[in-house]
């Protein structure tokens, strides 16, 4: 922990850890059931009983945000899991086999990168049904290109090394070489991009739910709590402030952690 950068990374790790614990232990932390409707208590401003206030149906906002963390964070994790998986397969196949397979796959990556990705995501979500599983899949299949490029570049340089030649010489199969020898040695930059990817996916989910094309109410996610709060814009500030604030600290936490990891793995390259 020598300089301020490390402190920032530690701070990020603490935020990420805290939010994850909050999501896991949501039922223990939340003071109310997040879907308990109580019209008489609708639109209360923050007080001791409801520390973040209540929404238009009288549901406790604090509890909804805590349970929303489960949805928003799990979408972030699973979406990134899908994108890393696709990226690993495409990137390592392209890097390992090279030649025309490499050319075709990398052209495909170029094409995918040319889409204004939010347009593509919107189009896919709209034609599919907007639900949690589809959101995870859609974010995953539109964000794997960075991982594919990273892993391909690493493998291109690794595959000429002696330990790979050695395992080829003793007759290891291609699959074994890729999975056991190449990927583990190339995983560091992928890990960094995965951590940063969680931040991006949480933000994407929130944007989609905010437009009504993401997680559908009454299931709480940070994005759709914000969407519902939009109706009382300028009247009930807490309905928009708190969910947005949680998105902010989540994205901030993952970004700080990701940058810290990047520096740890590759101290020379600073961003």
């Amino acid at each position: 922990m020598r300089n301020s950068k490390n402190k920032l990374a530690l701070f990020g790790a603490l935020m990420v850890g805290g939010l994850t614990l909050m999501a896991i232990f949501a039922p223990l932390i939340a003071p109310f059931n997040p879907s308990d409707i109580d019209i008489e208590d609708a639109l209360l401003s923050p007080s001791r009983a409801h520390i973040f206030g209540t929404d238009h149906l009288g549901r406790d906002l604090f509890s909804r945000i805590i349970f929303g963390a489960r949805i928003s964070l799990s979408i972030g994790f699973v979406a990134v899991g899908i994108s890393v998986l696709i990226g690993l397969v495409i990137g390592s196949v392209a890097g390992y086999y090279g030649k025309s397979i490499d050319t075709i796959l990398m052209r495909f990556v170029d094409i995918m990168l040319c889409f204004p990705s939010f347009f593509l995501i919107l189009a896919v979500v709209a034609v599919l049904e907007p639900n949690i599983i589809n959101i995870m899949i859609v974010i995953g299949i539109t964000s794997w290109m960075g991982v594919a490029r990273l892993i391909r570049a690493e493998i291109l340089s690794l595959k000429e090394r002696e330990f790979i030649l050695a395992s080829k010489a003793i007759g290891a199969s291609d699959l074994r070489i890729i999975v056991r020898h190449l990927i583990p040695n190339a995983i560091a930059p992928v890990l960094v991009s995965a951590v940063l990817g969680v931040a991006a996916a949480v933000l994407l989910e929130a944007s989609l739910s905010f437009l009504g094309l993401g997680v559908q109410p009454p299931t709480p996610s940070w994005g759709n709590i914000l969407m519902e709060g939009k109706a009382s814009l300028g009247v009930c500030w807490w309905l928009m402030f708190f969910p947005g604030f949680f998105i902010l600290i989540t994205v901030l936490g993952y970004n700080l952690l990701g940058e810290g990891l990047r520096e740890y793995f590759n101290p020379k390259k600073k961003i």
Partner: peptide, 25 residues
């Protein structure tokens, strides 16, 4: 540095709504 990280993490639509409700309403 801190400002930049926070700026990068702010959800645009949230910022838009907050500014709208403050400056607009």
């Amino acid at each position: 540095t801190v400002f930049v990280f926070v700026g990068f993490a702010v959800p645009g639509f949230w910022l838009a709504l907050m500014l709208m409700s403050f400056f607009g309403i």
